[in-house]
């Protein structure tokens, strides 16, 4: 049995790592090696390599030239990365904050029609988001939210809020009421009990929710493309735009950009993996 699990893990690992590995290899090539006649995938430090070899010369070019402005695009890569960072992190912060507060309310107080509210909140996920792209486009035009960071932040926050509320409600339900009741009796206000007791005990849930919200905002493409010309374009839209580039697709730079783009999410996930893995069982509640 112990070895059998590798039958599942190994193919899955290959499946997920291969595209990433290929992108990484591409990012250290020069343009000519990306569309050469022979497929080149063995990195080498040698300067002169024959055309029909599987080897290619490693070059940091793509990374150093990320800022280069391509034909028909207004800014370099880092400007778009900054857009992604601003929009991704602020919308994540907003959906987790609002979601946690809402979830706490649903979890701890008697709210008239709580079940219906929760179902309504969940039902906002039933629709594929892009189905409402037209009305949203019209609304955004009305309110001058097109081409703004704020527009996408509001949009991603509201789309992630339902996920955030439902996830956080699950986690907060797991925290015994006695935890905060003890704090209330000990002289704490409801707000202080929430900050001092509930938030620290819900940090696993907060981390998990934040990962999901960030990934979904970070990778979103449809709305980011529809609601933007230049100002708030995020990295996915920028790369997609490069595909029709008149002067050819700059594959090494696209690949290098992807590596840089994926890195923050990977780092973030690795940072909170302890919380992702840590259960939500809280040890010594007397049963």
């Amino acid at each position: 049995m112990k070895h059998a699990r590798w039958l599942v893990i190994a193919p899955y690992f290959l499946l997920t790592i291969l595209p990433l590995a290929w992108i990484f290899l591409t990012s250290i090539k020069v343009q000519e090696d990306t569309n050469s006649r022979t497929v080149k995938f063995i990195p080498s430090l040698a300067k002169e390599i024959p055309d029909d070899s599987r080897r290619f010369t490693v070059s940091p070019d793509a990374y150093t030239r990320l800022e280069e402005k391509h034909t028909g695009v207004e800014y370099g890569f880092y400007r778009y990365l900054a857009n992604s960072v601003i929009i991704g992190f602020i919308s994540t912060l907003a959906s987790v904050t609002l979601g946690t507060c809402c979830a706490y309310g649903f979890s701890r107080f008697k709210i008239p029609g709580a079940r219906d509210w929760l179902f309504f909140i969940l039902s906002t996920r039933f629709l594929p988001p892009l189905a409402v792209v037209m009305p949203i486009l019209l609304m955004y035009r009305q309110f001058d939210l097109q081409n703004t960071h704020l527009g996408l932040i509001i949009l991603y926050t509201s789309f992630n809020l339902s996920l955030s509320i439902w996830l956080m409600k699950g986690f907060i339900d797991e925290i015994p009421r006695a935890y905060e009741e003890a704090a209330l009796v000990d002289g704490y206000s409801r707000w202080h009990a929430f900050v001092r007791i509930i938030l620290p005990h819900a940090r696993t849930g907060i981390a998990v929710t934040a990962v999901f919200c960030l990934i979904s905002a970070w990778n979103e493409y449809g709305f980011a493309m529809t609601l933007n010309q230049q100002q708030a374009v995020t990295v996915p839209v920028y790369f997609a735009g490069l595909q029709g580039n008149i002067s050819g697709i700059p594959w090494p730079q696209v690949a290098a950009g992807i590596i840089v783009f994926v890195a923050p999410v990977m780092v973030f996930t690795v940072l909170v993996r302890k919380h992702l893995l840590r259960g939500v069982t809280f040890g010594t509640v007397k049963q």
């Binding site: 006695a178 009741e181 209330l184 007791i197 809280f282 509640v285 007397k286």
Partner: peptide, 20 residues
Amino acid sequence: MSPAERDMSLVFQNFSLYPD
């Protein structure tokens, strides 16, 4: 009065300490 203002202490049946 809120629980805090009542200045009583309560030992719960099913909870004693913050475990962590």
